[in-house]
Amino acid sequence: MLDKKIRLALIGLGKMGISHLSIAGANPHVEIVGVCDTSKMVLTFLEKQTPFSVYDDYKKMIDEAKPQAVILSVPTKYHAGMIEGLLDKNIHVFAEKPLTLDAATSQKLAEKAEVLGLINQVGYHNHFIGTFLEMKRLLQKNILGDVYHFTAEAYGPVVTKAKDSTWRSKQEEGGGCLYDYASHVIDLVNFSLSEIVGVSGVELKKIFSKEVEDAVYGTLHLKSGISGILSVNWSDPTYRKMSTKLTVFGKNGKIIADATELKMNLNEPIKGGSYDRGWTTISVGTIQEPVGFYLRGEEYTAQLDYFISSIQNGIRSSQHNFRQGAKTDHAIALIRKAIH
């Protein structure tokens, strides 16, 4: 790895942006050359309490601070235009999820970044959780034999009563459970199983929100030929925080994975495999790679480490890039289309 620090700037300092800033701030391979937001309160806080150079105009920041890379955590409706502009300036981009509100635009951005040879990544942090990675690895080894079904779920307590509206309560700005919670689950299916090519039986349910859905239910049809159930609800107060679970059913057994553990039941052990017949439980703590700085979970640090080292080493990911993000945006579009 080269010793030279990556000049990084951050645009958007809401919940995810602040968290990225803290993690990047502790990364010894990063020099933070600028941070930008439109909230005066946030900018004042950073100006007074931290050493970072603050801007309220991202274009000015890009021109003055000249970052090599940007972390973009603004409301999704701004992604397309900003990413386009950043790529034009030859800047590597890490964008929060979902990539954009339009699948064709996402695809174009993916192609553009590839043509320009720029590192591009989308913040689907589940890719960096040990249990989901292990599930993907086991499925690639065909440990379950013929897979015939899956359930992909996420539940949590984001909107548990009717309240004031923010951009998250407006669909045209990228609000709602489909763009938020469900995008993670959809991405996880694309990442660990196979690309989603069709949907059926879709229900978008409003529970407390007036303008957007709080729950997403339906059947996902994959390129590999199998189908499974999507069940996501961000208005479930019985969960303390977001809890994502993927269960895969095969003729030789079943795997249940969430962010804390992987449970597998095999009818027959596979040749050369290290797993026995019957139940095996693997706790994430036993397989998760340690990180240099921990804030909210190893995966958040791991995804930024990956972005930075990709830039340093010129390695272009095929797993976490815009193209992968575009697949998820495509599946989201299929779901939207299905209800109209």
Binding site: G14, R168, K241
Partner: peptide, 15 residues
């Protein structure tokens, strides 16, 4: 923290 984190996701930092 989850009390605040869930509130920030829904209402923004100011909210």
């Amino acid at each position: 923290a989850h009390k605040y984190a869930n509130a920030v996701t829904e209402l923004g930092i100011m909210g």
